[in-house]
Amino acid sequence: MTPRRGLLRELSANRIMFLMLLPVVVFFIINAYIPMVGIYYAFTKFDFNRSLFNSEFVGMENFKFLWNSGILAKLTVNTLGYNAAFILFGNVLAIFCAILLSEIRLKWFKKLTQSIMFLPYFISFVILSVVVYNLFNYDSGFLNTMLKAFHMNPVDVYNTPWVWVPLIIIFYLWKNLGYSMVIYLAAITGISEEYYEASKIDGANIFHRVWYITVPMLKNTFVVLLLFALGSIMKGQFDLFYQLIGNNGVLYNVTDILDTYVYRSLKVTFDIGLATSAGLYQSLFGFILVMTVNTIIRKINDEYALF
């Protein structure tokens, strides 16, 4: 059987399903695959007078600005580290809160708290940065005003780099908890009540039920979130870093990520090639990581793999 025949047969047998997928396919072709030609910019010298494919091919030249920066390794480590922390703590906290919330019986309390936990998601980082400055600035910040009131020495948060590692993670969690919690909450809602009934009869207490039923049932959701997070592990959260840290070079050693570096250093450069090459580096990194992890997951349990 030639593959063509197989495809045709598939097409005719499942034409409704193919039709149902069609909008999605068209969408991604237009919105994602066609613009992907732009990756070629990474290997050319940008020229206003020539179209993309007529531009001069320069090979890996554009990548030099990343290698030559001398801090690519540091940036990579920072980006990976923060994202790993976001994934780990983000999911653990979201699962934890979702489980607690799902067991609360007081309806109004449940609804109210859930709404409020969603609030931070709406506060843009620009505005958050203003609030944070008001909390932590040395001269008149909320924290130092409190410390002084208790006759303690004020702390200089904005000149203490290490503090920002936990702080940034905390602000990330704070902002995204409500969002990721909803995903897990929906997953918990989907778990059939029968499992719990059965376990009750077996004499399991609530802690057992959570640990042996709820948590395993969330594995699937977790894997999806994980694979998506891994794919963009070299990107993302630009605003969080850019707004909270801004021009404060003192903190860069521990807070600079690839996105902020690229943004700052190319702000005044209009060469599209440089920015594209940085994006490609991030993509390749994520791609390799995801392919590896997905293969491993597939080995363990085919059901959980993404593709």
Partner: peptide, 9 residues
Amino acid sequence: FPKNVLNVK
């Protein structure tokens, strides 16, 4: 000027 001038916007 404030000590944390690098974060004043």
